[in-house]
């Protein structure tokens, strides 16, 4: 097991390196520091001196891969690639283009993100699975057909409408919750309920239909027929046998996203004004602050790989056939 995790983490290094190279190529080769300076300075202030000054101020004045001017080892290390990309490996995110410490921002902003994402994830999983089980229990009846139609209809609506509809009804019309914003502490729940509810409703169509399909597939298998031949009740067959086996594909999709819950949801956070990592990222995208975008890409990849390892570990718990070695 330990051996396995070690190997997986070793395998993560080339992947993260690949991610780094990719973002590096996007941000520094296709889109040179000169281009960036021009954008940040705005059209009116573009002079060669201003560009140089901006690059020096923000640490973009070094060569990309090889610093011919430096001595010794610095030839290879005193470069943009090492300074801006490789340092991410030790979680040194550096400063954003407007000069703030990215690591500190992440530390502060992950909590509001988590406050929205975690309840959404947990309640969602429970709700979607229950709904899917309900449909499967009544499979072939009008309830099932109606439920599936509802799912398809719900998943055919853009997520934007759920947000807009939620804000309009619950915020503006009924005055249940504030339309947007966030407050840490005890009052946080007031700001949490609506984003969580909206995310839940937005996801129910897709997820429930997917889970239902998984269950139906399991129900067609031979061991279910055996269980029924033993005289077990439908309910027991569904919960003990079908759910137990369906856990394996369900975990594949579910566990991998857990570490990323820290990063929040871009759309939800920016619509509801939650000062989390999601809205941080969106703001960075809109401000073209590449230092932040780069850091978030790296962080996202790292958490994804952690998620993959967790997924594998969770298999050992759900499926006795899986042994990690």
């Amino acid at each position: 097991m330990l051996n396995y995790i070690l190997r997986r983490l070793l395998y993560a290094i080339p992947i993260l390196l690949g991610v780094n190279l990719l973002t590096f190529a996007l941000f520094f080769m296709v889109n040179t520091p000169d281009d960036m300076a021009r954008i940040h300075l705005g059209a009116k202030h573009v002079t060669p001196e201003a560009i140089t000054r901006w690059k020096v101020e923000h640490g973009y004045d070094k060569p990309l891969f090889l610093n011919a001017a430096a001595a010794g080892l610095d030839k290879a290390t005193d470069t943009l690639f090492v300074e801006k990309s490789l340092k991410l490996f030790v979680l040194d995110f550096g400063a954003s283009d407007d000069g703030r410490d990215i690591a500190r921002e992440i530390g502060q902003r992950m909590w509001p993100s988590l406050a929205i994402a975690l309840p959404t994830f947990l309640v969602g999983l429970l709700a979607y699975l229950s709904f899917a089980l309900l449909l499967v229990f009544f499979r072939g009846t009008a309830l099932d057909t109606g439920g599936v139609i509802l799912c398809v209809a719900l998943m055919s609506i853009s997520g934007l409408f759920y947000v807009i509809g939620g804000q309009y009804l619950m915020g503006k019309l009924w005055h249940w919750f504030p339309i947007s914003g966030y407050q840490p502490g005890l009052d946080a729940w007031k700001f949490m309920v609506m984003p969580v509810l909206v995310s839940l409703i937005g996801g129910i169509g897709d997820s429930s239909r997917f889970y239902r399909a998984l269950f139906i597939e399991e129900i067609g298998k031979d061991y279910v027929r055996t269980a029924r031949a033993k005289g077990l009740s439908d309910l027991r067959v569904l919960f003990r046998h079908v759910l137990g086996n369906a856990m394996i594909p369900i975990l594949t999709g579910v566990v991998v996203v857990i570490p990323r819950l820290f990063m929040g949801s871009l759309i939800i956070e920016s619509f509801f004004g939650i000062p989390g990592l999601g809205s941080y990222t969106i703001d960075a995208i809109q401000a073209q602050d590449f230092a932040i975008v780069r850091s978030m890409v790296f962080l996202g990849s790292l958490l994804y790989i952690v998620g993959l390892v967790l997924t594998d570990i969770s298999y050992t718990w759900a499926d006795p056939r899986v042994r990690l070695e």
Binding site: I15, L16, V19, L22, T23, R260, M263, L266, T281, V293, M296, V297, G300, S301, Y304, I305
Partner: peptide
């Protein structure tokens, strides 16, 4: 895949 889709 490891890069968050929207970010990429």
């Amino acid at each position: 895949n490891s890069i968050p889709g929207v970010l990429l």
